[in-house]
């Protein structure tokens, strides 16, 4: 599973309230949520992400509430992958469950805004094509890959229950 995209960089502790502020949680359509992705910290994100991006961030990405709208908004704003030094645990599960690829790696000083990255989720190899750097990240656990490959947790559970 190889993913490519241009980098958008954020810092530490990007919480779910800045990813999708509470007042938008009544929006049910993923495309509507996507218009407000990262609004709390960077209202220009949906525009930046139009052609597909990879978010590179610091520690504790997705901390705060359990709102699944956070990864949903990012995914539907064309975020192809989130790479962070660490993720808050509920966001981590939610991202995998809805099929937003994420991977843990420390890329400080190894990427700049706008660099072209390629990510292999299974091997954990990240390539910065702009700078010509390769980084070995921790690959996703097998269960997570299985869920993402199934197309998300709902499909995974359907399969497990013999409904597909």
């Amino acid at each position: 599973m190889k993913i490519e995209g241009r980098v958008v960089v954020y810092g530490d502790n990007i919480d779910t309230d800045v990813i999708i502020p509470g007042r938008y949680l009544v929006l049910q359509e993923p495309s509507e949520l996507a218009k407000h992705a990262m609004e709390g910290i960077d209202p220009s994100f949906p525009e930046k992400a139009r052609e597909g991006v990879i978010i590179v961030a610091g520690r504790n990405f997705g901390c705060g509430s359990s709102r699944e709208e956070a990864p949903v908004a990012l995914k539907h704003a064309n975020t192809r992958c989130v790479i962070a030094e660490s993720f808050a645990r509920i966001f981590y599960r939610n991202a995998i469950n809805i099929g937003l690829p994420i991977i843990e790696a420390s890329l400080r000083d190894k990427v700049s805004e706008g660099d072209l990255l390629s990510v292999d989720l299974v091997s954990g190899i990240i390539e910065n094509k702009t700078k010509g750097v390769r980084i070995q990240a921790k690959p996703l656990p097998p269960l997570a890959i299985e869920i993402i490959n199934a197309g998300g947790l709902t499909k995974y559970v359907r399969r497990k229950l013999g409904l597909e």
Partner: peptide
């Protein structure tokens, strides 16, 4: 809801999950 952890006040193990995890719990 992330603040489900509150119920540990009574000695339960309680944790918050997202909507899809919860749907899977309702189903299974």
């Amino acid at each position: 809801d992330s603040h489900t952890v509150t119920y540990g006040a009574l000695g339960a193990f309680a944790t918050g999950v997202g909507a899809t995890d919860m749907a899977a719990v309702l189903a299974t």
